[in-house]
Nucleic acid binder design. Sequence first.
DNA 1: TACAATACCAAGCAAGCGCTTGGTTAGTCA
DNA 2: TGACTAACCAAGCGCTTGCTTGGTATTGTA
Lengths: 200, 200
Amino acid sequence: MLEKLVAEGIITDPKSPKGRLIQAAARLFRDKGYERTTVRDLAAEVGILSGSLFHHFKNKERILRAVMEEAILLNTESMKAALAEANTAEERVLALIKCELKSILGDTGAAMTVLVFEWRSLNEDSQKVILELRDIYEQLWLDALTEAKDEGLVVIEPFILRRLLTGALSWTVNWYDDSGEMDLDELARNALSLAIKHNI
Amino acid sequence: MLEKLVAEGIITDPKSPKGRLIQAAARLFRDKGYERTTVRDLAAEVGILSGSLFHHFKNKERILRAVMEEAILLNTESMKAALAEANTAEERVLALIKCELKSILGDTGAAMTVLVFEWRSLNEDSQKVILELRDIYEQLWLDALTEAKDEGLVVIEPFILRRLLTGALSWTVNWYDDSGEMDLDELARNALSLAIKHNI
DNA sequence: TACAATACCAAGCAAGCGCTTGGTTAGTCA
DNA sequence: TGACTAACCAAGCGCTTGCTTGGTATTGTA
C-alpha cells in the first residue's frame, strides 16, 4: 500500500531525507504543537542544521502542510481497502471506525493528530488544499453511515453522527493506552455501540 | 450564580480590569491559539500597553491558567445546580450533556475550548492545579454514568463512555452553528442517544 | 571521468517575542 | 490634606524566531 503510493509519487519515501523530515515533523508537531516546535528542533531531529530545512521546503508552514497531506492521502487509501473487504453496512461502519482508530493510534498517529489539532496553523491556501482531500475522506464515512441509517441501524442523522464520532475517535489520542487492558478492537466495538443500536 | 462566586472571591469580577483581561484572553487564545497570541495582542484587546499586563499577572502562562481555572470552577458549579434539578438517572446524564454543551457553545465557550485544547501550554505546576479541579468535575460525570449503567441504560463502561463523550462534545465547537436548524436541546438529545439505549 | 543535481553547512540578519524598569496618574480613605 | 494603592505608561533589553545567502560536499548518471 505505502510502497505503491510512494512509487506513484503520491507520498514521499519515508526513507529519503525529505520523508524522514516529514515523519519527524509529525512527531514534534504532535508532541509540542506546531508553534512551539522551532525549525531548529526539526533540523536537530533529523541531524541537520536549521537552514538546511529550506532546501526541502520553502517555509515551515509547508512542512505542516506536507505532514497533513500525506497523512490524509495514505489513510483515505487504507479506508478504501478496508471497505472493499466489508460485506454489510454494519461491517463497513466498524471497518471505518477501526481504520480511523488505527490511523490515530498507530504508525500514522502523529500525523493524524496534527491533522486534527493544528488546522488553524495552516494558511488559507493550504487549508483549501487539505479541505479538498478531507472531503473525499469524509464522503466515505457519509456513504457508510447513510447506508446504515437507511437500514435502520442508526437513528441520528449521518452528518451529525459523523461529527460526533469524529470528536469521540480523535479524542482517543488523549487517553487510550494500547499497553492497557483494552485492545484496539474492543475500543472499536465500544465506539460502534455509540453509533449503532444493537439488539444484543 | 456568577455573582455569588465573584462575591466569594472564587472568580474575578468580569467587569474589573483583571476580569476583562481574562475574558479577552479566553477569546484570543481560542481564536488564535495560546502561542500565536502575543502579550501585545492581549494588551491591545483591553486597551492598555503590553507591559501593563504584568501588573495583573506575573507572566503570560498565568493568564492562561486563570482562564482555565475560572472556567472549570464556574462550570462545576453550574453542573451541580443542574444535577440538583434532575430526578432520574437519564435526566441527570442529559443534564450533564446539556450543561457541557452550553459551557462549550455559550458564554464560557471560549474559556472551555481553551481548557480542552491548550492544556500542553500549561507548565507542570499549573497542570497539577487544573487537574485537581478537573477531577472534581469529572467525578460528577462518572457518578451519573455509573448510575445509568447500574440501571441498564448504558452498555459501555462509564469511564470509557465518558472519554468518548468528552471528545464528541468538545468537538462540537468545531462545527456546531447555533444559528442553524438544530438547537442546542436537539443536539443534546442526539448526544444522549450515543450514550443511552432507548426502546423507541 | 565529467557533470549536474541533490543535500547540506556556516554565518548571520531582521523582526518579533516575553518581560523589566522606573516613573506617572487617578481614585480611596483616614 | 496627605498617605496609600491600584492601574497604567514609555522605553527598551535580551533573546529567539523563521529564514536568507553564498558556498561546499555527496551522490547518481552518462
